[in-house]
């Protein structure tokens, strides 16, 4: 009796295997000389993370829409050990430009660039210290935008207590945002109290625990804070939404979260952004015109638009902020960023 089923199972398996050999064909055209293909590899996480992965991916898509790009595609990294393999998916498929996102992937991007001189690599949030000609590392001065955010917070607070809820201190950008924020707040008001904490979850849950973020923000508000700076992926988002729910103000991070996090409209004064999207588009455009800067590129960092909270920022305030931007660039103001341990 069971033998019949054996046959069926074997047949279907054969079909499945046959199916896979057929599946490869359409990708081949990226290998052609005349086609332009752009690939994107995320840091551990998803392309729709409402944060830096999303910003890069949207920029890649935007670039593709504006240019004659044959194919764009992304691969989400599920396991940090797959960085190399995921980059290789594009390499093998003959992609011409590969954008990678995140600090940790930097080494692997550089290695891939070395091994594949015909492909250009753009690494977002990466420092290019490897002297590879076909690899540009894009960084941002997160401490600048953190500083500005801190200044905004200090100008808007009525309780003189502002709060920061952060992911983990294991990645430098988060540290930069935090230190910049604290320096900026103190720059406006030396007596201000800045209460802040990193998530206890490290890489495991540090950026993905919105409930912890919300609870922590609530505790900060109970401590008297009336502005919450949420900087840490979903964890930060949780904090931001909570501030809005409680009728306090909040400041987003990385991208203009007004656009990525509609739940935050109730409170989002601005976001301490790094202009990931524009930087990626700039780099891709530069690649098209062969003017891409090898080595490193510092992307923009600053405040996002105030949107509905325009009215809160008086002209005087804006003047101060504008001056800060100038002073930061000129070096008259130092954020004092040092890497913590």
């Amino acid at each position: 009796m069971s033998k019949k089923y054996l046959l069926i199972v074997v047949l279907v398996f054969a079909l499945v295997i046959a199916g896979c050999t057929a599946a490869d064909a359409p990708e081949a055209t990226c290998a052609d000389e005349e086609t332009l293909c752009v690939g994107f590899v995320t840091d551990v996480g998803e392309v729709d993370d409402k944060s830096f992965n999303q910003a890069s991916w949207e920029a890649v898509q935007e670039f593709a829409a504006a240019n004659d790009v044959f194919e764009v595609d992304y691969v989400e990294t599920r396991d940090a050990k797959d960085y190399e393999a995921n980059i290789n998916l594009f390499v093998e498929a003959g992609y011409d430009v590969i954008v990678t996102s995140g600090f940790a992937i930097g080494d692997y991007t550089a290695a891939a660039a070395l091994a594949n001189p015909d492909i250009y690599f753009i690494g977002v949030d990466q420092y290019q210290g490897f002297d590879v000609p076909n690899f540009t590392g894009v960084q941002f001065n997160e401490d600048y935008s953190g500083f500005l955010a801190g200044a905004v917070a200090a100008m808007l607070t009525e309780t003189d207590i502002v709060a920061g809820v952060y992911g983990t201190n294991l990645v430098p950008p988060v540290q930069k945002f935090k230190q910049g924020f604290e320096a900026g707040a103190a720059y406006i008001n030396p007596d201000i109290t800045v209460i802040s904490t990193y998530s206890p979850g490290g890489f495991e849950t540090g950026f993905t625990d919105p409930e912890w973020g919300a609870t922590t923000a609530a505790q900060a508000i109970d401590n008297g804070a009336d502005i919450v700076f949420g900087a840490g992926g979903q964890t930060g988002n949780g904090a931001i939404i909570e501030a809005g729910t409680q009728g306090k103000l909040c400041i987003g991070v990385d991208v203009d979260q007004w656009l990525t996090l509609p739940e935050a409209h109730a409170c989002l004064v601005t976001s301490a952004t790094k202009l990931i999207g524009p930087a990626v588009i700039d780099m891709l455009d530069a690649y098209m015109t062969d003017t891409i800067p090898e080595g490193n590129y510092i992307g923009g960092a600053g405040l996002a638009p105030y949107h509905d909270f325009e009215a809160l920022i008086t002209g005087d305030m804006q003047d101060i902020l504008d001056q800060i931007v100038l002073d930061l660039e000129s070096g008259a103001i130092l954020t004092g960023f040092v890497l913590e341990e």
Binding site: G106, G129, F130
Partner: peptide, 26 residues
């Protein structure tokens, strides 16, 4: 499990951290 995460995070971002100018990852 959570204790171990924190111990290893601390070690890899503190006493056992790689020191190099170009690299600041824990």
């Amino acid at each position: 499990n959570y204790v171990a995460i924190n111990i290893t995070d601390y070690l890899s971002n503190g006493p056992l951290k790689e020191v190099s100018s170009s690299d600041v990852v824990a």
